[in-house]
């Protein structure tokens, strides 16, 4: 294989979204490189989650080009789309764990659906994910409703990495957690990136978390990405919208 610079994991060009009678995005351009942690921030209603949903193919963009792993998602066949979907993991804001299954079954679910591995192996692998996200092993047999909020997030993260994805999406991973759990979760994000060679895209409002984990931050406003830069530089950005965002910290 040629050893040139690897292509970006995600490439968005001229993304437009028209939702509920209004333009949410007029022109979004963004690239995400391998191995980085990119955070998407912006005021409420600026369309951060809509960008995430477009990337995850949960929502068809009105116009624009989205390339995931170098493939244009519009031109993929159904089969290729499924293959593509298995290369990423998503952790939803409210965990979205299947409430009728235990934590272990939640993690085993994608494995048994998509692979032909034997039971013992998938069991060990699922337990490995549980340990990786820092849950005690006893959590495996519990139902999501029996876990605290912080543990539910961890379980959701474990399910998101069940299929060893290359790309992980996190929607507000630390929102609603107490500061201590939130900082621990930041450590987890960094740990996962380093051990599993993940690329991480997250939507977050948590300033501490952004400072600790993100490599670059994309600021969404006025239907565009106003700026993509590390947090230290972003805070000095003269754009009034960005300055206003950071002014109340």
């Amino acid at each position: 294989m040629p050893k040139s610079a690897p292509p970006p994991i995600i490439e968005i060009q001229g993304l437009k979204n028209y939702l509920g009678g209004a333009w949410v995005h007029s022109d979004v351009n963004l690239t995400v490189n391998k191995g980085e942690i990119l955070a998407i921030i912006g005021g409420s209603g600026s369309g951060k989650t809509t960008i995430l949903r477009s990337l995850l193919m949960l929502q068809k963009p009105t116009a624009g080009l989205i390339k995931m792993f170098g493939q244009d998602i519009k031109s993929l066949s159904a089969e290729d789309t499924d293959t593509l979907r298995r290369r990423w993991g998503m952790m939803f804001q409210h965990s979205a764990l299947f409430s009728a299954m235990t934590v272990l079954e939640n993690i085993l679910f994608p494995m048994t659906e998509f692979t032909k591995l034997d039971k013992q192996f998938t069991h060990e692998l699922a337990m490995l994910k549980i340990k990786l996200v820092g849950l005690p092993k006893e959590a495996a047999g519990k139902y999501p409703a029996e876990l605290s909020g912080g543990m539910q997030r961890r379980a959701a993260a474990a399910r998101a990495i069940a299929m060893d994805p290359e790309l992980l999406f996190l929607d507000e991973p630390t929102t609603g957690l107490d500061p201590h759990s939130a900082r621990q979760f930041d450590d987890l994000i960094l740990f996962l990136r380093d051990t599993l060679n993940l690329t991480i895209v997250m939507v977050s409002h948590d300033f501490e978390s952004l400072k600790k984990t993100s490599d670059r931050i994309a600021f969404v406003g006025k239907g565009k990405i106003l700026s993509v830069e590390p947090i230290a530089e972003l805070m000095k950005n003269p754009d009034p919208l960005i300055a206003d965002y950071f002014s109340n910290l």
Partner: peptide, 20 residues
């Protein structure tokens, strides 16, 4: 990085056999 991952899994291996 591969060795690191193997080491990590090795260190957790006993708890992987846990049956709920």
């Amino acid at each position: 990085s591969q060795l690191l991952l193997i080491e990590l899994v090795q260190s957790q291996y006993t708890s992987l056999l846990y049956e709920p």
